[in-house]
Design a binder for these strands. Structure first.
Lengths: 162, 162
DNA sequence: CTGTATTCCATGGTGAAACACCTAATCCAA
DNA sequence: TTGGATTAGGTGTTTCACCATGGAATACAG
């Protein structure tokens, strides 16, 4: 369905708006799909799953909060409280870090590992279906275009901040 | 910058994850860019601007809350309270709707029109730069791929809910 | 015309995000 | 060593999203 139909827009698009809208709407569908198909039934948020997944892929001794933060997709996430919630559910634990007592290492518990594994299986199934409607060439093209946009956005952000 | 570098991922991607991550990250950059470059300095949220923009493009008598909702990108937005906040700032007003007294029509005030126009100008400048790093052919390709993904996601969502 | 179903909106509660502030540990230069 | 700067992370507050509830107006079947 075309953007204009989808958002019931009657006027013509301004240049550039279409790409922005498509990106916003694309991620909107994606998150809604994963919320419905995955996170909702396990009562976990996408951000929380992201932490579990990062920990799973990390070293056995875990990550510091700052290491988690820079790996999160949503950069300014409130990582300490995110970890608090996971800790309260017993999915994660904090261990003292003798090398630098300012920060503690966050590690998956056995329960957290089990949940991560369960979610990962379903996540893969959903992701595979996302992928499935594109040919490999299209997929690569999409990835490369999105990468170009990211690079450009990063540049513009730097201009705005610097 | 490649996704893997950006998120400091060491392991290989599972199939399909890359597209999902790229979408999430793409919209992340986009919203951050618009927040920094536009919304932050006017002390308005993207959702609030979206309402103003929808009203601007709509009929002179305004829209009902439900008409706003179905045109929002973020579908489950808390539209009544969004309108409350805009109303409190004098950007929007509610008028009785004689045809159906269950809902009132939301209209832009003069102040709201002025702010919308100011934001729109800057929004266009930013959007144009977003567009600028893609050729027209690439732009169309990106839009069409994203549209295909949306259609597929919608289908999957319907399956999950039905 | 009457009772029921439906639609539209507002609101209360819960939980999470944004932003700034605060504490503690570490680093480093004088 | 000691003083300040830096870094890590926790906390307080406000705002907002999300869900469920409820009430008012409308539509409709009988």
């Amino acid at each position: 369905m075309h953007l204009r139909e989808e958002l019931q827009i009657t006027k013509s698009f301004e240049p550039g708006q279409e790409v922005a809208l498509a990106l916003l709407l694309g991620r909107e569908y994606l998150t809604r799909l994963f919320d419905k198909g995955l996170f909702e039934r396990e009562e976990i948020s996408d951000q929380q799953f992201n932490v579990l997944r990062i920990l799973k892929g990390g070293p056995r001794e875990g990550y510091l909060v700052k290491d988690l933060r820079c790996r999160m997709i949503f950069r300014f996430a409130d990582v300490p409280r995110l970890v608090n919630r996971l800790e309260a559910r017993g999915l994660v634990k904090r261990c003292e870090n003798p090398a630098d007592r300012r920060g503690s290492r966050v590690q998956l518990t056995a329960k957290g590992q089990a949940l991560e594994a369960r979610l990962r299986a379903r996540h893969q199934a959903l992701s595979a279906r996302v992928d499935h409607c594109l040919s490999p060439a299209e997929r690569d093209q999409l990835l490369s275009l999105l990468e170009r946009l990211r690079d450009d956005h990063r540049e513009q952000l730097a201009e705005l901040e610097g």
